[in-house]
Design a binder for these strands. Structure first.
Lengths: 237, 237
DNA sequence: GCAAAAAGTGTCTTTATGCCACTATAAATG
DNA sequence: CATTTATAGTGGCATAAAGACACTTTTTGC
């Protein structure tokens, strides 16, 4: 049998197979807290529980897993998040009552915006402060997935400026530092933080300022490619 | 409809679905080179090409994706590798001619051993020096997967001792340093390397020595939990 | 004007790596 | 058996980046 014959007769539905979904953990910084976008499930299984935005691959519509993730997030938020990174796959016999299932997961960051302007769909989307997640019963193994995503982001906060993508396009160094402190779980030296940021040369001073309470703070934007920069040393340790 | 009714009528084969495989990138250090275990494919598709050890999930046999990876690697090497870590999932419409497919991947490390003692199977397993991979045409997108796995390991070599799991149970500091230099791609200061290793306190001096050429070198073994340790600063930068 | 509070800086200390020369140990050589 | 040689392993100062913390600056609100 040559390859074309083999492919002609091949049908993977003949074998028992897990089914595949894509789930995304989307974070945004808002009101001094890190928020995670969750969806109230209206359908079985896990009906009425909060879950990560996710869904099945649409084989004819999606070119890749990442395209699936982008489609799902755009559906819920109206935009394509500026930061999207692959997390690991979770798969076992019990995580979904429908059977052996695999979910391939992504971490995404974006600026906070009132959620779901385009999501006039069946399901309700809402930003949840990650501090409040512990008390909530989430669908499937999504609590564990969010924990892993947070841990990943926490690590990145130690040696990169990746968290900046969870801020608006223009932000102050104070806001950026607060976000890092939130992730790392302890206060950082203002001087150390600013020195690193300056040396890395990843931000543009927009010239504008923002008055929060007292002295106005300079507003910065992220340079292109900032996501690729890693410091050689961790902060806050 | 309640949940049990929903589950009773649910059949995901009704919807077009990608199929899922698991592939593992297994590295071992041998003869001053990093080697990667590859399998010569005997079946369609990609017949006669070299590929990563991998395969389908066996839903009745495997409790999880990780269990699938362990089963596949044990099949090929006879052992359960001491280091196994999840890499990302790769999925798109074109990577496998059979259709929209997803592979969930793992990076594994183990001590080199003559391969496939238990693998009296259809396929031929062989260690390939990673330097020689560039000239080979690998099946599917496995070349890209190996590149990503190597990049991950290279990063880990900068801030951890993870590569130690690609060495035999007892090894010298010289061997460990050579492996790190191979991964990082440049020579390291002997003093810096040894200082880090000592301060981290991740190794046991076995009291034994190994004579390679001249002065015998102390043999060390890895302490439990060494995989979890991260240095606060990268080496070699 | 003056207090308050957050923005932003100067500078010394601390920590870990870079660098490089030095000593130690065993095999090989003649 | 002394000497060479090659690798194992150490001492010690230089350098780079973070930690600590006091200080100045800029604005608001009284």
């Amino acid at each position: 049998m040559d390859e074309s014959e083999y492919l002609a007769q091949y049908d993977h539905h003949k074998y028992p197979q897990p089914f595949v979904t894509v789930d995304a953990v989307l974070f945004a910084f808002h009101e001094k807290a890190l928020n995670c976008l969750l969806i109230k499930r209206t359908n079985h299984p896990e009906q009425n529980k909060w879950a990560l935005p996710g869904g099945f691959v649409h084989p004819t519509e999606d070119a890749s897993l990442e395209a699936t993730a982008v489609r799902i997030l755009k559906d819920k938020t109206g935009i394509r998040p500026p930061y999207l990174e692959s997390l690991k796959a979770y798969g076992n016999a019990t995580r979904d009552k429908r059977g052996w299932s695999v979910t391939t997961t992504y971490v995404a960051l974006m600026a906070y915006r009132e959620c779901a302007p385009t999501s006039n769909r069946v399901s309700e989307a809402q930003w949840i402060n990650v501090e409040e997640l512990d008390g909530m019963e989430l669908a499937f193994d999504h609590a564990a997935i969010i924990r892993d995503a947070l841990e990943r982001l926490r690590q990145k906060a130690l040696y990169s400026l990746i968290p900046v993508y969870a801020l608006p396009a223009k932000f102050t160094l104070g806001e950026l530092q607060h976000l890092h402190e939130l992730l790392i779980g302890k206060p950082l030296q203002k001087k150390s933080f600013r020195r690193r940021v300056e040396q890395a040369d990843l931000l543009n001073d927009t010239g504008e300022t923002k008055i929060v309470g007292k002295r106005p703070a300079a507003l910065y934007s992220v340079k292109k490619g900032a996501a690729d920069y890693n410091f050689v040393r961790n902060i806050g340790m």
